[in-house]
Amino acid sequence: MLRVTGLDKTFTLHLQGGRTIPVFHQAGFAVRAGECVVLAGASGVGKSTLLRLVYGNYKAAAGEVWVRHRDAEVDLVTADPRTVFAVRRETMGYVSQFLRCLPRVPAVDVVAEPLLALGVARDEARVRARVLLQRLRIPSSHLDLAPATFSGGEQQRVNIARGFAHPYPLLLLDEPTASLDAANRATVVELIQEAKARGAALLGIFHDADVRDRVADRFVDVEAMRAAA
């Protein structure tokens, strides 16, 4: 489902005299349908950077990121922007560490939005969003409020619901359980297991050892892909 090969990444800090920070050299790994691969390594080793290189909000200097999309393989590093948007809309979801959304848009619409972009009718999208938000224990009274006023844990759950609203064949998860209590962590583990059961490929970062052990099929050692400093 996802195949990364020969990926290089160096940050060039033009505002600091053009200082360069090499991060990855010849990084490579793969994620198959139905499995959850966990990026392992100490804090600061570049796990989130690797996830962003896959999603494409970080730009790779070299290498390929192949994703299976509409029965063909697409290299996201060289694909034209419209193809990247189609892959993000239909095939590859991303749950970031923090929720970023329009102020004043109700939680239910934040979650329904990726469905609307796929052409799901508004009413149906809202119903699916409500079900998911309630499953993640967002109080009914909050569903029609904008998440800006929610607690950190509630915002993270809105973010998770948004990521799981559409059954993406490939899902990237950046510490989805970081600020959640035990009951909600368990729900996220369930969602991940259901996604695996329907054949989704998942690539994630999990600091919580208990969650990690329950969802991981394999580990990828990010340290081993580091570029020499």
Binding site: T12, H14, R52, G56, N57, V84
Partner: peptide
């Protein structure tokens, strides 16, 4: 570039 790429990983000195 893609909006999130330009904002999250700007390449040109002026974008940075």
């Amino acid at each position: 570039g893609l909006t999130d790429q330009v904002l999250d990983d700007p390449q040109a000195p002026y974008s940075q």
